[in-house]
Amino acid sequence: MDISFFAAAVVAGTPLLYAILGELITEKSGQLNLGVEGMMLMGAVIGFKMAIITGNPYLALLGAMAAGGFGAIIYAVLTVTFRANQVVSGLTLTIFGTGFASFMGQGLMGEIVPPDMKLFFADFKIPFLGDIPILGQIFFNQGILVYSGYLLTIIAGLYIYRTQIGLNLRAVGENTAAADAAGIHVSLYKYVHVIIGGVLCGLAGAYLSLVYIPSWQENVTAGRGWIAVALVIFCKWNPYRVMMGAFLFGGLDIIGFRIQKFDIHISQYIIDLLPYIVTIVILILVSVRKSHSGSAPASLGVSYFREER
């Protein structure tokens, strides 16, 4: 196992990082959005389409974020305004997003991201940091979207734990009625953070279609959205842990290709299963030892009716 494996794990983990962060922020507001996979696919297809039409990386990313945000708005209208069941609404959003992406993706097959846009997303070394032995090679010789992923994680952490709005947000997620009584605009908070979550999921999809693959393919996410939902629990709703979870699972996803060269007598199929086995084990562990600090927002998944308070 060498440094190149760890650098590849960071790349494989980056789409997860955006998606986990998006879902984490959504869940902090007490909304459980299972539409991550759908919003990722919407972002992936619109981002790619914008890339082909405009050739401008900013417009492509903007389009992806708008598409993810649009998916989140549908979910927010259903669950916040009309108080529909959050689980069902999220699942519906995934089905909708998958269909939306295959429909919009017709005719994009075989297209590739324009070369100058590939350059925009290409790896570059960060001065000084990139020269640190080992760590520099793993973390600071990457593309622009990997770096912005690091930044967003830190910003999200500061936002949630160090600002007044972040405190209000946590209050909405923990005890919606109390937050409402304290004069916090509950619906507004829920809307804004569900949409921010969708925007980040759109970016996660765009990372796959614009940087990782750089070409269009149906179902480009291949279940990564679901892993992201489970990883929010793994990260114990703490944004600072998101990076660890994302890169660990990025590594598990690709480890099979790196150990095939060794003469190990483990079935390759077991290794393919590793990310899923680890997810299940972690879900069990988290629910067994219910420490106070690492548990879900208390109002997660519960629709808020002011009259019932």
């Binding site: 990782y212 480009v220 690709i254």
Partner: peptide, 13 residues
């Protein structure tokens, strides 16, 4: 494509 690319990257490494 993502997995196929990763397999190729492992070989290139």
């Amino acid at each position: 494509p993502a997995k196929e690319k990763e397999a190729a990257k492992a070989l290139l490494d």
